[in-house]
């Protein structure tokens, strides 16, 4: 048994990497997977607050790397689930406190005891990004249906391929069906065609995500929100299940979109 290391990255900041990491961690753990979410954003950590675990941190990733504690001591267990852990980033250090080899070593040590290691990458394409990608078996790119986010995603996709970590798969986050319907937002087909990459999930804009961030309880804990359902679908796809997307060609776009949104609801479990 050996965990798969999945790195979540984006290029642009603020597109939802940390939200995606937290929710996939929760969704996978709810499905019986043993999961460690790893915050690789040294100096700007946030995965802890997204998961509501900020008060339970004793040691962090840099403490582990610099030998101040054992790896197990730094893992914060999420008591709401059987097997969900957080390996927090250091908050008072910067990216230079970590090297790519450190990330590879830490992940290798965790591999045998878990099913998934989800690495939350910092924004950008510098050292922090490289550290996060170094241990990855696969990479998920998060983007929003906006010009700047798609452009940065394209850049990162190129870098991932150059590193031999491709092909990455895409998560389109914060899609607003109403705007798409009016033609005022890039639709799924446009984004996929532009980026020439496989899709693993679409997450609709959903205000419960904001409420979840306020309380530190990711939406994936409940399956009654559109975003929560989308995260569970992505988790199932990560676990190798065939979860169909709505048919992509025949019916009109509107019909397709509504059908897709409905199926997102029904296919959950």
């Amino acid at each position: 048994m050996s965990a798969r290391v999945v790195t979540i990255t984006s290029g642009k900041g603020g597109v939802g990497k940390t939200t995606v990491t937290a929710n996939l961690g929760v969704a996978l753990a709810m499905r019986g997977q043993r999961v460690v979410t790893i915050d690789a954003d040294i100096g700007l950590r946030n995965l802890d607050v997204m998961l509501g675990l900020e008060n339970r941190i004793v040691y962090d990733l840099v403490d582990v790397v610099e030998g101040r504690c054992r790896l197990r001591q730094a893992l914060v267990r999420d008591k709401r689930l059987q097997e969900l852990y957080l390996l927090p980033a250091a908050q008072t250090r910067d990216k230079s406190a970590l090297r790519a080899e450190d990330m590879v070593r830490v992940c290798d040590e965790l591999r045998e005891s878990f099913d998934f290691l989800l690495v939350d990458s910092p924004a950008g394409i510098e050292q922090g990004f490289r550290n996060a990608v170094a241990p990855a078996d696969e990479v998920l790119i998060v983007t929003n249906p906006e010009v700047a986010a798609v452009r940065d995603a394209d850049r990162v996709i190129g870098l991932i391929e150059a590193e031999g970590k491709g092909p990455a798969r895409l998560i389109i986050n914060r899609l607003k069906p109403e705007l798409v319907r009016r033609g005022e937002m890039l639709d799924m087909e446009a984004v996929l065609e532009l980026l020439a990459i496989d899709l693993i999930g679409i997450i609709p804009e959903d205000e419960t995500v904001i409420m979840a961030a306020n309380t530190g309880r990711p939406v994936a804990f409940a399956d009654n929100s559109p975003a929560g359902r989308s995260f569970h679908q992505i988790a199932r796809r990560l676990m190798g299940e065939e979860v169909p997307f709505a048919p992509l060609k025949e019916p009109g776009f509107l019909e397709r979109l509504f059908r897709w949104m409905r199926s997102e609801g029904e296919e959950q479990r």
């Binding site: 906006e146 010009v147 798609v150 452009r151 705007l179 798409v180 009016r182 033609g183 005022e184 937002m185 890039l186 639709d187 446009a190 532009l194």
Partner: peptide
């Protein structure tokens, strides 16, 4: 519509 403009620009 602006979505189409976004696509062309991208």
């Amino acid at each position: 519509p602006s979505g189409e403009i976004a696509r062309e620009r991208l």
